[in-house]
Simulated scan of single mutants.
Amino acid sequence: MSRLSDQVDAPMTPRQLATLRTLSAEAYQPNLTAREAERRIAALKAEIELANSF
């Protein structure tokens, strides 16, 4: 296995997690309704499923 694939498959770093949380709060509406949250969860799951199909 190459070093690049090791880096790609490695878990996110604590810094990445903190940055992702901050950006998510800024990019998305943190106070979603239950219905909005379910739609967002479904959309993200669909996106992940699509990405995993390649």
Rank of each mutant, 00 (worst) to 15 (best):
M1V: 00
M1K: 03
R3L: 02
R3W: 00
S5V: 03
S5A: 00
S5H: 00
D6N: 02
D6V: 02
Q7R: 03
V8D: 01
D9S: 04
D9P: 01
D9N: 03
D9F: 04
A10M: 04
A10I: 04
A10H: 05
P11Q: 01
P11T: 01
M12C: 03
M12H: 05
M12K: 09
M12W: 12
T13C: 01
T13I: 03
P14Y: 03
R15E: 07
Q16P: 12
Q16I: 00
L17W: 02
L17G: 04
A18D: 01
A18M: 05
A18T: 03
T19H: 09
T19P: 00
T19W: 08
T19I: 09
T19A: 11
L20R: 15
L20E: 09
R21Q: 05
R21W: 08
L23T: 14
L23C: 06
S24D: 14
A25P: 03
E26G: 07
A27G: 09
A27S: 15
A27C: 15
A27D: 12
Y28A: 06
Y28W: 05
Q29N: 14
P30Y: 05
P30G: 05
L32E: 14
L32K: 13
T33L: 02
T33E: 01
A34G: 02
A34F: 10
R35S: 14
E36C: 04
A37H: 08
A37D: 12
A37Y: 10
E38F: 01
R39K: 13
R39M: 11
R40T: 03
R40C: 01
R40E: 12
R40H: 02
I41A: 08
I41D: 08
A42E: 11
A43F: 13
A43T: 05
A43G: 11
A43R: 10
A43Q: 14
L44R: 12
L44V: 12
L44Y: 11
L44I: 12
K45V: 07
L50I: 10
L50K: 13
L50T: 08
L50D: 12
L50N: 10
A51C: 04
N52G: 08
N52M: 13
